[in-house]
Design a protein around this nucleic acid. Sequence first.
DNA 1: AAAAAACTGAACTGGTCAGTTTATATTTCT
DNA 2: AGAAATATAAACTGACCAGTTCAGTTTTTT
Lengths: 205, 205
Amino acid sequence: MNAPHAVIKQGRKWDQVLDGARTVFMRDGFEGASVDDIVREAGVSKATLYSYFPDKRLLFIEVAKMECQAQSDAAVAQLEGSDDVRDVLTTAAKRMTKFFMSDVGLQVHRIIVGESQRFPEIGREFFESGPARVHAILRKFLQKSVDAGELNIDDIDLAADQFPELCKAGLHLKMVLGLREPPSEAEIDRVIEGAVDMFLCKYGA
Amino acid sequence: MNAPHAVIKQGRKWDQVLDGARTVFMRDGFEGASVDDIVREAGVSKATLYSYFPDKRLLFIEVAKMECQAQSDAAVAQLEGSDDVRDVLTTAAKRMTKFFMSDVGLQVHRIIVGESQRFPEIGREFFESGPARVHAILRKFLQKSVDAGELNIDDIDLAADQFPELCKAGLHLKMVLGLREPPSEAEIDRVIEGAVDMFLCKYGA
DNA sequence: AAAAAACTGAACTGGTCAGTTTATATTTCT
DNA sequence: AGAAATATAAACTGACCAGTTCAGTTTTTT
């Protein structure tokens, strides 16, 4: 069995190229990043890069995909470990907020929003691998809790949309626009507690 | 009294330039817009444009300022006309949501977020003339209602941050990324009612 | 009507950048 | 070791674009 382990021929320096591209795109955005910067960062020749990717746009899309994937893996996981609804929601809120406010999360958000006109598929990729997964997992948990009689929700999709929104309250937009320092633990806790309180006030059984 | 009515000499075609720039920037973004496109759209010579604005960046900032101003004027007004808290909140929510979902509102949001790294002052300008004004007006109304014993809020700033966030639930991001049709009246009403319900559930006296 | 101010059009500069080419070198496979 | 695949460096092309310049025209002011 010495069959090639991938149909797509990727060459020895595939990872280097992607790493370099990730660094430069995340630092400078799509327009701001020049291909020469990327090859310098990657320690690779321009010809090599272009032997992997036919153009800058497709390289960017590949990087964006990877970043979205990594993002959602880190931020989203099954909601388990406690039987108390408030605990579970608080944990979920902390995870989400942590990612929303991270440098990577903010920068991905900025770039995706800014380029979503130019590259519609990137917007979809981002949404599916991030917000949509959060929604799905939250939805599942809420449904389970409703079935168990612990929550009382008529429109579960709406509720699963509201909760993440509450976790951003006031902080996220300011951070995206670079208008404030990262929030302290205390500030985050205040927002999260406010979110959970409000959510349970409305939907608690 | 034939004194010039403005200290800054603006020339006859000032408005033409700004209108053309507004059209092209809002259509193509900052990088996507070429100065030649703008002068063509404005029906003005390049030399004229550069006699008003020293460079493309400052022209863009001027346009962004105007757009933010127009935005907040349209979306934000005193919250009056009814004594019923629910009515007032519902009206406010409708106005906000209408703007959030409008073509102009979405495009301004995309461009500002995308360019906020390159032009930090634009982010601030946008925030002050938009979200911050909404926050201030909402805050004032909430305080008044608390004083009148109609609401019961311990952290008014948090509450004033939560409400607009609830009004976006699920819709805004999808629209920004171009992932769905504009919501129907029914969908908007559903989100708004959900927002007001949840808000009053938590803070109603 | 004369003078002053504003505008025009078109060519030009200098710089950047995506993507290509080529001749050469290194790595990997057999 | 020899062949085949992969990578390199560097120069090059073609296009785009911000910003300048200037000789000449139109509009406004006096």
